[in-house]
């Protein structure tokens, strides 16, 4: 059996910036640096703001590192994400919203959404040794 130590944070709208700080520290402690760490933290933050705005205002983060991969699950109990939110094209240039999920998918080495009426779990993964070759990237 292989066991990983998982760190969890609950968040509400008031706490997302504090949790973002904790996520940044966690990523640093596991060796993610510079632009890659910035991309990771922004992707996780976009996941949290989605939960806060569209999924009941709260959620749970679980983070762990295993086999050279940093993984972050962002789970909420919201109504699920409509399929149209997963368009490959970004919103029009004049549209102020709707870029969160699009950004998460561009920023992350892998971003998996498990979503339905019972809630959403977004799993963001970053390779700690640098981005994986394109053929190993998991299409989001």
């Amino acid at each position: 059996m292989i066991a990983y130590t998982v760190t969890t944070w609950e968040f509400t709208r008031e706490q997302i910036n504090t949790v973002r700080g904790s996520v940044t520290d966690y990523a640093s402690a596991h060796g993610l640096k510079g632009v890659r760490r910035g991309d990771f933290v922004l992707a996780v933050y976009e996941g949290m703001t989605n939960a806060v705005k569209h999924a009941g205002g709260r959620g749970l983060i679980r983070m762990w590192a295993a086999d050279g991969i940093l993984v972050c699950d962002i789970a909420d109990s919201g109504p699920g994400i409509p399929v149209t939110s997963f368009d490959d094209d970004p919103p029009s240039d004049h549209e102020p919203g709707g870029r969160g999920i699009w950004l998460i998918r561009r920023l992350s080495d892998s971003a998996d959404f498990t979503t339905g009426p019972g809630g959403t779990t977004l799993r963001i993964a970053f390779w700690l040794d640098g981005p994986p070759p394109d053929d190993l990237r998991v299409p989001a």
Partner: peptide, 16 residues
């Protein structure tokens, strides 16, 4: 020091 999609949205709104 940090900007997310909401911050970008603000710039789009302000430009409008």
């Amino acid at each position: 020091t940090f900007m997310d999609a909401c911050g970008l949205g603000a710039l789009i709104i302000l430009r409008r």
